[in-house]
């Protein structure tokens, strides 16, 4: 703090020591954020004993494929990966379509109770899903959807966040004059939505798609409740199943699977980070 006072003329200048301290904290934070990813890869590429090596081993090894081979012996890893890909894709396509439709209606139509209904949508964002898990399970049992992907896909087909996100974007990105012009030309409501609105809002739809895909891909609680059979497991359940002491914890094996399951999301995130961050933090910023 004394350095602060010394440079009162320009408060943004912290002085040499201040600057070093500033960067140390920021870089330390970044290291803590990134290290577990690196560590995951370190354990995945070294042999079984490496994980509890003293002092900790920090270099990459060449055992990745051996470790991964043991994953394939223990679990239908690629089946689980495929299941997750299928479920996440289906949910994402549906969420993007229905949320865009609803967001468009909230942004560009006038109808009775519009604001109340929209606030209701927002309010549902704060209701934790776990609370309704028992009746939802019973519904699924009645529909004979237990242990089926339908139980994962159908309840997730449209969500409040997506509606909120699309409404925000459509309000500013789609000009009302364009819609009116389309209507004067005699276009139907859905046609105007499809031909005039959609082309303008694809970036927001893509962002929603990525975010939603990640959420579904990472989901654990609900798949754990409804999936019973090994061949239906999603990737998160398959990972959790590998984590067992039955024949000693084989961390090299576990981490090679975890790394493989995390890598696709990491790549997508790094490619689209600006959009993903904007999307994931938008809830707070706009409300």
């Amino acid at each position: 703090m004394s350095t602060l006072r010394a440079f009162k003329k320009n408060p943004d200048d912290l002085g040499f020591i201040g600057k070093i301290g500033y960067y140390i904290v920021l870089i330390l934070g970044a290291l803590v954020s990134v290290f577990p990813f690196y560590w995951m890869f370190v354990v995945a590429t070294n042999d079984k004993g490496a994980v509890f090596h003293v002092p900790p081993l920090l270099t990459l090894g060449d055992q990745f494929f051996d470790n991964f081979k043991r994953v394939l012996e223990k679990a239908d890893f690629f089946q689980a990966l495929g299941n997750s890909l299928f479920v996440s894709s289906m949910v994402t396509i549906s969420v993007v379509f229905f949320c865009t439709l609803a967001g468009y209606a909230f942004a560009k139509y006038e109808f009775p109770f519009k604001n109340i209904l929209f606030y209701f949508v927002i309010a549902t964002l704060f209701v934790p899903q776990q609370l309704g898990v028992l009746p939802t399970y019973v519904i699924m049992a009645k529909l004979h959807w237990i242990d089926s992907f339908k139980a994962l896909i159908v309840p997730a087909m449209v969500n409040a966040f997506g509606i909120f996100w699309m409404r925000q974007y459509i309000s500013t990105a789609v000009h009302t004059e364009l819609i009116e012009a389309g209507r004067i030309d005699g276009g139907g409501h859905f046609r105007i939505f499809w031909n005039i609105a959609i082309p303008v809002i694809t970036p927001a739809m893509a962002t929603l798609g990525i975010l939603n895909f990640m959420t579904v891909w990472n989901d654990f609680f609900w798949p754990l409740v409804v999936l019973k059979n090994k061949e239906h497991f999603t990737i998160q359940i398959a990972l959790q199943q590998l984590f067992t002491t039955r024949d000693g914890l084989d961390y090299g094996m576990i981490m090679s699977a975890t790394f493989t399951a995390t890598l696709p999301l990491l790549i997508v995130f790094l490619l689209f980070s600006r959009w993903v961050i904007a999307g994931l933090t938008s809830g707070a910023i706009k409300s």
Partner: peptide, 28 residues
């Protein structure tokens, strides 16, 4: 920095837990 700080959030909770269980092992 924004990207690096955000990275943990895209990881699944299962993956996070598995990684940290190695760090928090008795000899971790």
């Amino acid at each position: 920095f924004r990207i690096l700080y955000f990275m943990p959030n895209i990881t699944s909770i299962v993956a996070v837990t598995l990684v940290f269980s190695t760090l928090f092992g008795n000899n971790g």
